[in-house]
Amino acid sequence: MTQTRIPVQFILNGKKTAVDILPEQSALQVIRDELGMKGTKEGCGIGECGACTIEVNGQAVNACLMFGVQLDGCRVMTVEGLAEDGRLHPVQEKFLAGHAVQCGFCTPGLLMSTHALLGENPEPDDHQIVQAISGNICRCTGYQQIFSSVRAACGQSDQGSVRENQDSKEERC
């Protein structure tokens, strides 16, 4: 059976992109399977891990929970859009220097969450950083080197510094 494909157009990493997709395809499937860009990962398929985080109109979203059709007319950015001419983006630089990468499967999603955060709020406080990255599960690092790298990316502190005792009472509300 041939299925009806529908055309969608969006700006992907600064480039006009047109692709015919199946209506039930997720944005993740469109990016990985139709466009062959493998930087965005699938970790759970249900929005519980954040490995597929991309930026749509400047906001971090789970590509696995988004229908491909929802990309239509949007400005989309994936991890492939961060580095320019082989030069790492500052956020990538900080992750590299801050030893924030272990297995690396969560890394693209975390980079995109960080990039979106800095786009919205160039000077986030610790609480806002945690809010922005707590939709991205990492099983390797315990988040500490990631956290300090995000901090460094917004010019807040030296690499490797320890996060101050994050009080839970506020966050629990």
Partner: peptide, 14 residues
């Protein structure tokens, strides 16, 4: 770290 750049740039290594 060896291999970190490939992971940071989303290379198709998995």
């Amino acid at each position: 770290r060896r291999g970190a750049k490939e992971r940071l740039t989303g290379n198709p290594i998995f």
